[in-house]
Design a protein around this nucleic acid. Sequence first.
DNA 1: CGCATTGCGGAAAACGCTTTCTAAAACAGA
DNA 2: TCTGTTTTAGAAAGCGTTTTCCGCAATGCG
Lengths: 366, 366
Amino acid sequence: MAAPRKSSSNRRATVSIRDVARRARVSIATVSRAVNRVPTVDPDLAKRVWKAVAEVGYVPNTQARALVSGRSHILGLIVSEITNPFFPELVQEFENLAVAQGYEVMIGSTNYDAERTEQLIRRMLQRSVDGVAVMTFGIEEDIIKRLVEPDFPLVFVDAGPDLPNIRLLKVNYDEGIREAVQHLAALGHREIAFISGPLRLRSAAARRDAFRKSMADLGLAVPARHLVEGDHTLEGGMAAIEKLAALPELPTAVVCSNDMTAIGVLHGLFRTTYKVPEDISVVGFDDIHLAQFVLPPLTTVQMSCNSLAAAAVQALRAGIEPENARAPQSEWPIATHLVVRRSTTFPRGTLPALKRKAASAKAGKK
Amino acid sequence: MAAPRKSSSNRRATVSIRDVARRARVSIATVSRAVNRVPTVDPDLAKRVWKAVAEVGYVPNTQARALVSGRSHILGLIVSEITNPFFPELVQEFENLAVAQGYEVMIGSTNYDAERTEQLIRRMLQRSVDGVAVMTFGIEEDIIKRLVEPDFPLVFVDAGPDLPNIRLLKVNYDEGIREAVQHLAALGHREIAFISGPLRLRSAAARRDAFRKSMADLGLAVPARHLVEGDHTLEGGMAAIEKLAALPELPTAVVCSNDMTAIGVLHGLFRTTYKVPEDISVVGFDDIHLAQFVLPPLTTVQMSCNSLAAAAVQALRAGIEPENARAPQSEWPIATHLVVRRSTTFPRGTLPALKRKAASAKAGKK
DNA sequence: CGCATTGCGGAAAACGCTTTCTAAAACAGA
DNA sequence: TCTGTTTTAGAAAGCGTTTTCCGCAATGCG
């Protein structure tokens, strides 16, 4: 059907290890060893090989390499929604690190859809990725467990099946959310609402629980009407704040499960007569880039996607190359911390408990 | 060094074409043909093969397939900045289409950096992608030309070297920008400024030129001080509007080269006493998702990333599988159109030229 | 019924690489 | 000088596919 490959391939003229071998007058085995820096090859020979490599412009064929070595040097990265601004930041960082360590990245987003997720994993396995980081924050782990061999390197966030091949990135939600709640309480807030993400996400539930715990620890009540379920989108945030605004009396502060929700709240409130932060303080979660640029700049809990990405890559490599792993670590802690900007201040008519904090927050103008 | 592969591979237990062949009592050649739906194989045999495939859970090894067929079924997609919200939308669409057509996608962002771009292309070639869509809107085409064989399928946006392997996605900036300018002129604006992107980007220059042309055609002057160069980021938009605000008299409307810039303008103006749209009308470009949700919702020129992605995938396939290509098309037109929202209205004290348009824009409340 | 033709499945040769196995050379010790 | 040991490079066996080539059986035709 096709013309003989040799004569006129319509792919790029492929220069193979054989060409290098011929040029350097050595066997292909030696070329392979030299290129892979196997130490037993004579330095002079190696030099000759490298020269030939440069001369003929040799680039090893990754497919062939993967075929024989069983390693593709590709890491799978599964996120929930590439269009949610948090994830591109994560993806970028992950990719930078992976590439720096000799890996390629295969990205996919689940869009919270089980079938799509299954497809995605299948595709990744078919491309024989060396491991997968599942950064969806808590969805579909059963699908993954079902599709994947029990010794396949996997990284989950927060929680996952307790198997030796699975590494966990444990995000310390409590820490940052406690800081947020204490910050609000210190400003004088007592009525604080929480807009969660979709509760089937482990991370969403975890954040909500952290909120409740922090409130309880301060002796503050959280009536059911102050816990609204959102969906981690801007639109969801707008809808949620509308629900809260419909209450006989509004809480004086709202903590949101992610920044997009918080931004939605900001936008929702712009349409009302309520002002942020004077009437209502708003706190986000994630600290996406955009958070600094909304109006007012968003006070939020930072979950560093740098450390998240770094931990994920490290953890994956630990699973893929056990020989290079240092400590056989199975849990990787991720810190979270409050970043105070302008979207929080003391409630109208309430004197702040802590002068200092109030002063810094007060700088928020409009 | 390693244990004999057969006995205890630490990769997933790989079931190969041989296992299927054994099970179906046919040769591996037949399995291959059946799996690839070659029509010459007897339907009964094919059925037997498929049954065996299902029974042993066979999944073809893409690496081996790529090695022998010379096609990886991977499309490269190069964008400038994955963290610019326009691109994730594009990426998502591109990926959906590619996957639906049997391709995988390898994504990379240049971050406007030449060295990084070169690295990226090298990586893509090393993974032997079947073709690359360069959606950076005009950067580094020389790098690509240098690294890539002259018959390698390539897709560029706007313009590129005139080679037979290169397909061009021709975005019709004129159309949408003309609509924007006419819309503003119809509302009564005469002093309209333009904030461009980085002018070394072809697309940025093209948008600016389209703006100048549209203005000229309406007999409107564009003094140099009304042409500000931005950088397509939110921060750049804020900086640019500050520059304009420092002018003895502000223009009554600003057209921006992309939505992030426009959003930056919105934010910049919030810090002043000027109101959008009452004091200044703002128009964006791209129509990213966020544009609907800023305050006020942004009037913008929509460049459909759906059609952009669709055209890119189609054009790539046309280059990769010439046998399946319909018309040997080398230019793919992309339309742009104005979407009127709330960030534009007639200038203070000016009666709109066109009653109707003004009425629809007037709906903007605040 | 015999011969040419067609249809279809199997054997085997790649694809480009890694890695094992083997053998040659170099060296040391007796 | 010969044997035994250590290097180090080459030969060759795969890795899991696709695809060509070949041969066998079945069919059509005279």
